[in-house]
Design a protein around this nucleic acid. Structure first.
Lengths: 187, 187
DNA sequence: ATAAAGATCGACTAATCAGTCAAAATTGTA
DNA sequence: TACAATTTTGACTGATTAGTCGATCTTTAT
């Protein structure tokens, strides 16, 4: 692992534990067992470090999700797969989850920039498909995407609050049904 | 307005603009046109100020919501009223919204403490009612509450991103339908 | 009127922290 | 080997900031 990666890894953990502002750059370097200076060699400012970490999390989630989707699945299956991929990723990587939560309510975040990411694009394509098929409520795909992501957040938080549910696959599927009903046209 | 209230008011604005950590206590006092010392007279630490503000926002939302609910309404109407009250409160008070968003992803927040607030209690009662009537999905009332609040957040954010929708009452109702479908047992 | 209690002031401090820099170590290359 | 480029070091600094404190003003009660 390069020092750059090591720094981002350590920063992720510390940011999750103590927040962006509760974590001095000096401490990141110390716990990564590298010098203070090298942090600023790779990330000229703390803000640049945080922004780089955001892109990194998004990229890793994208790669993981891509590995899960199958051709030939129904729309519901595909959406479920994507939903579940993100939920499980965050369950396995709580530091990523806490980081994103902070980032998204920090001054750095903008919705527009989120829309540029490959993971968002991929999900939007699927949602658009569902809209064309008349399965979903008639809203903009962006709105449905944001609703879906909020409910992902909810699922991760709720399961996180209740250890018992960690291994409960049926529960996860029932939680997905909440999302599915939220998006789809109901009778 | 007392200096204490004035300080909280100013802090709310500045926190929304620059975040908790981007806002020095000295600046809060300065823009509230009171002395630095008086801030620490009322709020011994910055953390205590932030916590007091959280309770204050919750209380004001509770009072506003209470004024909206009617006896004799159907369950759906009641839930809608509560949902809409929070959405509209946040639309009218974006500083409160930004403050809460930050607070809820800060180290200060805990779900348990949220559950103690009167506004949460009120909403939980209604949700429990719906569960007894078999209208809602069979989950814990807490979970349904959290889902509802996430979708409130989504509504406020989305309308905030699209000025045109600010006065669109029908759109708001259609957004509520997303929440309603998420909570209820569907066919 | 007098005293006690509380409110208000603002200059001050002790600590913290993001970012710098010149030098040293390491790596690549001819 | 020699030389340049790159990586790495860690002591240092300038600025910022939460919180203190003794003094002064205002209110309330007797």
């Amino acid at each position: 692992m390069t020092k750059k990666e090591l720094l981002m890894l350590t920063a992720r953990r510390l940011f999750a534990e103590n927040g962006f502002y509760g974590t001095p750059t000096a401490r990141i370097a110390k716990e990564a067992e590298v010098s203070n200076g090298i942090l600023f060699h790779y990330f000229p400012t703390k803000e640049k470090l945080i922004r780089a970490m955001y892109i990194d999390v998004k990229d890793r989630i994208f790669e993981y999700s891509l590995g899960q989707v199958y051709k030939g699945a129904t729309l519901k299956e595909s959406i479920y797969t994507l939903w579940l991929a993100v939920v499980e990723w965050y369950m396995e990587h709580p530091e990523d989850f806490h980081f994103m939560r902070q980032y998204e309510s920090s001054p750095y975040y903008s919705v527009d920039s989120e829309m540029e990411h490959r993971h968002t694009q991929l999900t939007l394509e699927l949602i658009s498909e569902g809209m064309e098929q008349g399965i979903f409520k008639t809203f903009s795909a962006h709105l449905l995407f944001q609703i879906m992501m909020k409910l992902v957040q909810n699922a991760v938080e709720y399961i996180g609050q209740h250890e018992v549910l960690r291994e409960d696959f049926e529960f996860r599927y029932r939680l997905f049904d909440v999302t599915w009903d939220a998006l789809r046209k109901t009778n």
